[in-house]
Design a protein around this nucleic acid. Sequence first.
DNA 1: GGAGCGTATGTTATCGATGACATCAGTAAC
DNA 2: GTTACTGATGTCATCGATAACATACGCTCC
Lengths: 338, 338
Amino acid sequence: MNEDASRPRQPSMADVAGIAGVSAQTVSRVLRGSPNVSPETSRRVLAAVEQIGYRFNSAARALSSGRSHTIGLVLLASGGYYSRSAVTAGVESAAGEAGYAVSIATISALDVGLMERSLSKLADQNVDGFVIAVPLISVTRKMEEITRDIPTVTLDGSRTAGARVLGIDQREAGRIATQHLLDLGHRQVWHVSGPDEWIEARQRREGWRECLEQAGIEAPPPLEGDWSPVSGYRQGQIIAMIPEVTAVFVASDEMAFGVIKALRERGRSVPEDVSIVSVDDIALAAFCAPPLTAVRQDFFGYGAAAVRLLLDADAGPEEVVGTPALSVRDSTAPPRVV
Amino acid sequence: MNEDASRPRQPSMADVAGIAGVSAQTVSRVLRGSPNVSPETSRRVLAAVEQIGYRFNSAARALSSGRSHTIGLVLLASGGYYSRSAVTAGVESAAGEAGYAVSIATISALDVGLMERSLSKLADQNVDGFVIAVPLISVTRKMEEITRDIPTVTLDGSRTAGARVLGIDQREAGRIATQHLLDLGHRQVWHVSGPDEWIEARQRREGWRECLEQAGIEAPPPLEGDWSPVSGYRQGQIIAMIPEVTAVFVASDEMAFGVIKALRERGRSVPEDVSIVSVDDIALAAFCAPPLTAVRQDFFGYGAAAVRLLLDADAGPEEVVGTPALSVRDSTAPPRVV
DNA sequence: GGAGCGTATGTTATCGATGACATCAGTAAC
DNA sequence: GTTACTGATGTCATCGATAACATACGCTCC
C-alpha cells in the first residue's frame, strides 16, 4: 500500500527475482538447490539475495508446501535435568543438520490430558514429526488421531502405534547392575525404583528381580521414588533403618545421591557398609563422593537417533542405541566381612 | 483438485464456516476471542470446529499476520545441564501461558559466527522474539541487524542494543560468597572462576576480589575453569598442592564437585581442611557429599521473566530476578585452628 | 530434417488465515 | 423521522513460497 521510503517490509523472493532479472520460481529453485539451474543464473540470484539481505520466510513455505521443517519435541518436567538437556541437545543437533527446527513442549506431569494438549499444540504448529521423550502410559483416541497424521518416534521404550523403540534394554540394565553387586559377594540386593508409571522403571525392576531369582534369592520389596534426589533421600532413610542391607540398586543417579546422603546421615558409609549401583551415569556421577558405579545411557545419542528415524526414509522400523554397560567406580565394594 | 472421498486435506476455517453457516472471517473472530460476536454464533462455530476436528494452521496465520507466535531460545551447549534445563523450562512455561511456542537453537561454543547462524535460523522461522541465554562477548553488525527487527531479551547480565538485564547481581554473589568465608575466620580465599568470556564469570571474580580488598587481603591469582566438573577437578588438583589454602570460592556447583574430588584425593577434606562456596545451588547441591554451601540462582525464574519482558508491552526496560542469597550447608566451616 | 527429449526458465493458481473495508440491522439522540 | 452510531457479520485482497503446468531452446537420432 504505502510504497514510500519507510516501507519496513522484508524483501521477498519476488524482490530478489526483480534484481536478478529472473522469475520468483527460479529464485525458489536456486535457494532449494534444484538441479536444473544454470550456474550463471544461480550466481546472479545469490548475489541479489546478498545484496538486499533477503531472508527466507518459512511460514510461507509451510503454508504452500504443507511442510514446516520443524520437529516437535515433547519432554517431561520431572525426570532428571541431565537427561532432559542431553536428549534435547541430541534432537536439536541432528535436526539442525537436516535443516529442521525444533519446537519444544514440556508437560509437568505424566497425564494423558496434558499430553494431548501438548501434542495438539505442536500439531497446530504444523510440525513434521514428533519426538516424544515421555513414557506413554496409555494412548488415548485423540493422541492416536494426532500421531496418525504425523510421524512419531517415542523414546523411553514404550510402544505406541507407529512408534519405534530406542534406548538401552532397561531390563538388561537392571540385570547387570544387580549381577555386579552379586559378583562382589553381596547376598541380597535391595532396589529403589523409579515411578511405576514409567516403563523404564518397571523394566529395570524386572531385570533386578529376574537376576535375583536366577541366583535363587528372594527379592525384597522394592521401594519407589520419583527420580528426584529428595525421593531417593526419603527411601534411603528407610533403607538405613534396615541393618542387613549391604547393597542397593537405585534406578537413577540423582536418586542414588539422595540414598547415599540418607545412609551416611545414619552412619552407614558407601561403599564400606552399603554398595550402590545406579543407572544413567550423568556428568556429575564421576565427581560426587563417592563416584557412582552406574549403567551408562547415551541420552544425546537417543535424541539424535530419534530424529534420524523420523527423517530418514530408509531407516528401519526400530533402532536401538547402545548396549547396557557398567561404569564401575567407587560406590560399590565387596560386603564387609562379618 | 480431487474432491473424492480420499481427500486427506485438513479442514480449514472455510470448512468450519460452511458447516456453521457463517463466513470464514467470523470463524476467525470466534477463535481469536473477538468481542463483537454473538454468543449464538460463537456456539455454532465452536460446535462445527468440534464436529469436523478443525485444527488451527499457524503457518497461515504467520503468513497473513506476520506474527508467528513463536519465541526463539538460544542456548549454549556448554555451561551446565541444570541451568540449561531450568531456563528452558521457565521460558517454555511462560511462553506457553501466553500462547506462544518455543523454538530452540543451541550453539556449541561461544563463537560469534555460530551465534549469527543461530539467530539467522530462528529469524528465518519468523520468531516474534529472542531469548538469548548466552553471554554475548561482542555483537556483530549482522547480529545487530537481526535483533533490531526482532525484540530481544538477553539473560546473563550482558548488554546488547535493546537487551534487558536479568539475573542476580553476579558481583554481589561473588562478594557474599567470599564474605561468608571471611566471616568464618578464613584469612585468605582462593577462586576458581568460569571462562573469561562469560560476563558472569568476570563479575563474580570482581566481587570476590573487591571483597578481599575491602578486608585488606591481597587476592591470590584466580584459576580458570570452563564450568565443567572436569575442569573443576583439574584446578582442584593445583589447589591441593598449595598447603596454605583453607577456603575456595568456586564459580559454579558443577566445578565445585570437581574441586572437592581433587582435594579429597590429595587427602584434604571438605570442609575440615578446606571450605568451599559455589554459585547456582542446583538440585543436586544439597544431596552430594558434602552438601554445598552456594549462592542460589533461580534459573526457571530467569527464563520466565525473560519471556514476560518480551511479551508484556508494559514491562519496564529491565527486570532483575532475585537477590543473591546464600544456602549455607556443610561445605564450609571455620578454618582448623593451627 | 523433423520427431523426440532434456534442460532452463516463466506463468498461474494455490495453501489458510487475516486486515481493511463494506454492509446491514437496531437503537439512541435530536 | 431523519441522523449518527454501534454491534454483528460478510467480501475481498493479501501475505510469500511453491506445485503444476507451460514454454522455449538446443541437441540427438533415425
